[in-house]
Lab assay of single mutants.
Amino acid sequence: ATNIVGKVKWYNSTKNFGFIEQDNGGKDVFVHKSAVDAAGLHSLEEGQDVIFDLEEKQGKAYAVNLRIK
Rank of each mutant, 00 (worst) to 15 (best):
A1C: 04
A1W: 07
A1T: 12
A1R: 06
T2H: 08
T2F: 08
T2Y: 12
N3P: 04
N3G: 15
N3I: 03
N3H: 07
N3E: 10
I4R: 08
I4Y: 06
I4N: 08
I4T: 06
I4V: 09
V5F: 12
V5L: 11
V5I: 08
G6H: 01
G6W: 01
G6Q: 01
G6C: 01
G6T: 01
G6F: 01
K7R: 10
K7D: 01
K7Q: 06
V8D: 00
V8E: 00
V8T: 03
V8M: 03
V8N: 01
K9H: 04
K9T: 03
K9G: 03
W10D: 02
W10T: 04
W10N: 03
W10Y: 08
W10E: 02
Y11F: 11
Y11R: 01
Y11K: 01
N12W: 14
N12A: 12
N12F: 08
N12Q: 14
N12I: 07
N12T: 07
S13F: 15
S13Y: 07
S13R: 11
S13T: 07
S13C: 05
S13Q: 10
S13A: 10
T14D: 10
T14R: 13
T14N: 14
T14W: 15
K15P: 01
K15V: 13
K15C: 04
K15M: 12
K15D: 05
K15Y: 13
K15R: 13
N16H: 09
N16P: 02
N16L: 11
N16W: 13
N16A: 15
N16I: 02
F17R: 02
F17D: 01
F17N: 02
F17M: 06
F17E: 02
G18I: 01
G18L: 02
G18H: 01
G18D: 00
G18A: 02
G18R: 00
G18W: 02
F19T: 02
F19G: 01
F19Y: 08
F19A: 02
I20Y: 00
I20E: 00
I20P: 00
I20K: 00
I20F: 06
I20N: 00
I20V: 07
I20H: 00
E21C: 05
E21K: 15
E21I: 13
E21S: 11
E21Y: 15
Q22A: 15
Q22I: 08
Q22G: 11
Q22E: 08
Q22C: 04
D23K: 15
D23A: 14
D23C: 06
D23E: 09
N24I: 13
N24Y: 15
G25Y: 08
G25C: 05
G25T: 11
G25A: 09
G25S: 13
G25K: 15
G25F: 13
G25N: 10
G26D: 07
G26H: 14
G26W: 15
G26I: 10
G26Q: 07
K27D: 09
K27Q: 08
K27P: 13
K27E: 07
D28F: 06
D28I: 05
D28P: 07
D28L: 07
D28C: 04
D28W: 06
V29Q: 02
V29W: 06
V29G: 01
F30T: 02
F30K: 02
F30H: 02
F30G: 02
F30P: 03
F30C: 03
V31S: 01
H32Q: 03
H32R: 03
H32A: 05
K33M: 05
K33V: 09
K33F: 13
S34I: 15
S34T: 13
S34A: 09
A35E: 11
A35D: 06
A35M: 10
A35F: 06
A35P: 01
A35Q: 09
A35K: 06
A35I: 08
V36E: 01
V36M: 10
V36S: 02
V36D: 01
D37A: 10
D37Q: 10
D37R: 12
D37E: 07
D37S: 14
D37Y: 14
D37N: 09
D37F: 15
A38L: 12
A38Y: 08
A38I: 14
A38M: 12
A38T: 13
A38R: 12
A39D: 02
A39V: 06
G40Q: 12
G40F: 07
G40H: 11
G40D: 14
L41W: 14
L41R: 11
L41H: 08
L41Y: 06
L41V: 07
L41T: 06
H42G: 10
H42S: 15
H42L: 14
H42W: 10
H42C: 05
S43N: 11
S43I: 12
S43V: 15
S43D: 15
S43H: 12
S43Q: 12
S43K: 07
S43R: 08
E45A: 15
E45H: 11
E45Y: 11
E45D: 12
E45C: 06
E46F: 15
E46D: 07
E46A: 11
G47F: 06
G47R: 09
G47Q: 10
G47C: 04
Q48D: 14
Q48Y: 08
Q48P: 02
Q48T: 12
Q48R: 11
Q48F: 08
D49P: 11
D49I: 12
V50K: 00
I51W: 15
I51C: 04
I51R: 15
F52A: 03
F52V: 04
F52L: 03
D53I: 03
D53N: 13
D53A: 04
D53W: 04
D53G: 04
D53K: 03
L54I: 09
L54A: 06
L54N: 06
L54R: 15
L54K: 15
E55R: 13
E55M: 13
E55I: 14
E55H: 09
E55C: 04
E55V: 15
E56G: 07
E56Q: 10
E56L: 15
E56V: 13
E56K: 08
K57Q: 13
Q58E: 09
Q58V: 12
Q58T: 07
Q58H: 07
Q58F: 08
Q58S: 09
Q58W: 12
Q58L: 09
Q58N: 09
G59T: 13
G59M: 12
G59A: 15
G59C: 04
K60S: 11
K60E: 07
K60W: 11
K60G: 08
K60M: 13
K60L: 10
A61S: 07
A61L: 15
Y62S: 11
Y62Q: 15
Y62D: 02
Y62G: 13
A63S: 05
A63D: 00
A63T: 03
A63G: 08
A63F: 01
V64L: 08
V64N: 08
V64D: 05
V64C: 04
N65K: 08
N65W: 03
N65F: 15
N65C: 04
N65M: 07
N65H: 12
N65P: 00
L66A: 01
L66K: 00
L66Q: 00
L66G: 00
L66T: 01
R67V: 07
R67G: 05
R67P: 00
R67N: 08
R67L: 08
R67Q: 08
I68F: 06
I68N: 13
K69V: 04
K69G: 07
K69H: 08
K69C: 05
K69W: 03
K69D: 09
K69Y: 06
